[in-house]
Amino acid sequence: MERVQADVDETSLRWLGVTRVRYSIPLEFSVGGGVVVARVPASHDCATFCEYRGFVAQIEPGSAGGQLGVGYARLIGAHKPRSAFLNNVYVGWSARAVLVRTWGDSDLDPARQTLAGFEGQFALPRITFNLGVLRRISSAHEGADRYVYTAGIGWGF
């Protein structure tokens, strides 16, 4: 029992890379890269799958804007031996505070603006969804909407 208890309780902090490709409003086509930081039992190699609960941070440039997000993630995933990236997320979710800057041909009015808000993400193997709400924090002309609802679909986490 003591050995089992030690195996469960002795944890180490793991930093694992996460990536995603998605189409979303308002970023349109984007590629994200970030990190999940979580404690897992120190002796577990997580080559089959492990649960990760912890901090997530991600930067995501897209064709119509860029996003910076930080928050909490809970996921079941696996990484290849000696790889620093989660190559498989079987199921997971995250809640993030995000900062978005739009550019180029963005559908928003004005096309270039800065927004801040929240995003919820739900991931299954090979597919990820997100929904959120943003509030404009940059100045705009009178009558411009303050809130934007966001949604996206893609691959990765």
Binding site: V4, E51, Y90
Partner: peptide, 11 residues
């Protein structure tokens, strides 16, 4: 998933 299974495939 279940925690016991996750533990048993890793420990």
């Amino acid at each position: 998933f279940d925690g016991f299974e996750t533990w048993s495939v890793n420990s």
